[in-house]
Design a protein around this nucleic acid. Structure first.
Length: 131
RNA sequence: UUAGCAAACAAUUCUGUCGCUCCGAAAUGGAGAGGAAAGUCCGGGCAACAUAGAGCAUCUUGCUUCCUAACAGGAAGGAUUCGUUUCAAACGGAGACAGCCAGUGCCACAGAAAAUAAACCGUCACGAUGUGAAAUACAUCGGGAUAAGGGUGAAAACGUGAGGUAAGAGCUCACGGCAUCAUAAGGUGACUUAUGUUGCGGUAAACCUCAAGAGUUGAAAGACCAAAUAAACCUCGAUUACUGAGUUGCUCGCUCAAAUUAUUCGACAAAAAGUCGAUUAAUAUCGAGGAGGGUAGGUCGUUUGAGCCCGAUAGCAAUGUCGGUGCCUAGAUAAAUGACAGAAUCCAUUCACAUGGAUACAGAACCCGGCUUACACGUUUGCUUUUAUA
RNA sequence: GCGUUCGUAGUUCAAUGGAUAGAAUAUCAGAUUUCGGCUCUGAGGGUUGGGGGUUCGAGUCCCUCCGAGCGCA
């Protein structure tokens, strides 16, 4: 299951507003990760993800596209083993946003390491409030 | 041969694995960023609204002819101007290149004067007074004439010579410069040449005049479907007469009663708030507009088009016309092109093996035609330049 | 996607096409004070966002590029 279809991406404006209004977050360079557990999300996928690269950090559209594509590619390759297999409850619905806060273009390896770490930290944060 | 500048071309290719978006019933199927996709500086298509016609205002354009759907774009040409060679002319480049003989305004400082010319110095004769033997001499004063000369300035009343005059002056004449107008010849035309006439500061990227053009708003336009809210509020118009009960087979009509809101009056109360009673008015439906609230989904518009390729043909060219069993070549909607591996080609380092990299500028958002700006390596052309040789 | 406004000293703002771009405040130096503040005197600080054009002359007029803001769902 290495696919990454539309239903796994976060598109609804209402959910995005809710996420930034009442979601919890943590930093892990070069990302700020914001997430919320909300059972009202109507989607088949347990997790919906949003990738953001702000225009303030990277002025050129080409650079923003490159960073977004690297983030998507890393997420696609590692989500199955690190996220989906480690979920505490099968019926849980989670919305996540990855906000890029680095200056300049980070290498593929740097992004790969950071996203891997962030996934395991996310799972730890999820299991705490459930208990 | 070294380096730089400008212009043009070009903008790596192929295969596999795992993914993404679209097409497709599905497949081991097919398609998938640019020369500028950028800036949004112009022009058009398309859509909605407005619109009898004309004028004013505002904005834009401004040598000519042609091309084009259209343009502030392009092609060819004209005059002007700059550079080079050369002084006949040739080659290359540049520009918003209509009109200050319609009117108004402005021209700092300096300078006598910056625009109906003007009299500060100077020049000139005349008059008066004085000096003097006297004079056509000298000095002072007066009201005049004059535009030749005057360390200015970006710019000084067209330039040179002669005549003329008291001194002078385009005042007159000759030659020359520029411009308006008229006529003739050539050219589709801008314009050129010749003759005559009139005239001689600059500035329109100052207001303005003339000619030509422009309705406004932009795909967040607009059309449809679904969902949601309110059967509510305010204003206007039309139709009508209301909520409940009774009467009637039913409707209209008639009778009775209650509620809410507002107006006025009275009672209770120190006052206010409030309570009670009486009186008058309103309460509905449809349509239009306003303000506010709700929704935050989908389909179309939307990618077959002023389209691309090849050939013929008209034209100096921009470009047009005709033909083809020719081709279909991104279409997302918080937004798709990525990662890995291999090969060819190119670049950097190195004697080589080999290692590293494929990069510059930069990412479609309704679609086209231009313009402008950015751009690594490489190739070609032109100009400047370094070194070497002759 | 479309429209629109702006860019001047470190900061906030002026300047009709005309001499070396001005004011307040901030900075620095001096005076005053035992010291500091307040006050007084003086000084420095400008690619008028970049480039080109029109003009005798441009912060101002025109073109182009860069940057910033605002509005339209």
């Amino acid at each position: 299951m290495l696919s990454f279809k539309k239903k796994e991406r976060l598109c609804s404006k209402k959910v995005i507003d809710l996420l930034y209004k009442s979601g919890s977050s943590f930093f892990l360079y070069p990302f700020k990760i914001q997430f919320i557990i909300n059972p009202t999300i109507t989607s088949n996928s347990p997790i919906q993800v949003l990738f953001i690269v702000p225009k303030k950090r990277l002025k050129k559209a080409v650079d923003r596209n490159l960073v977004k594509r690297r983030m998507r590619e890393v997420y696609r390759c590692h989500k199955q083993t690190l996220l989906y297999a480690a979920l505490p409850d099968s019926n849980i619905k989670i919305a996540i946003s990855y906000l890029y806060v680095g200056n300049g273009i980070e290498s593929f390896e740097q992004i790969e390491n950071s996203i891997k770490k962030s996934m395991s930290q996310l799972i730890r944060n999820l299991s705490k409030p459930v208990q």
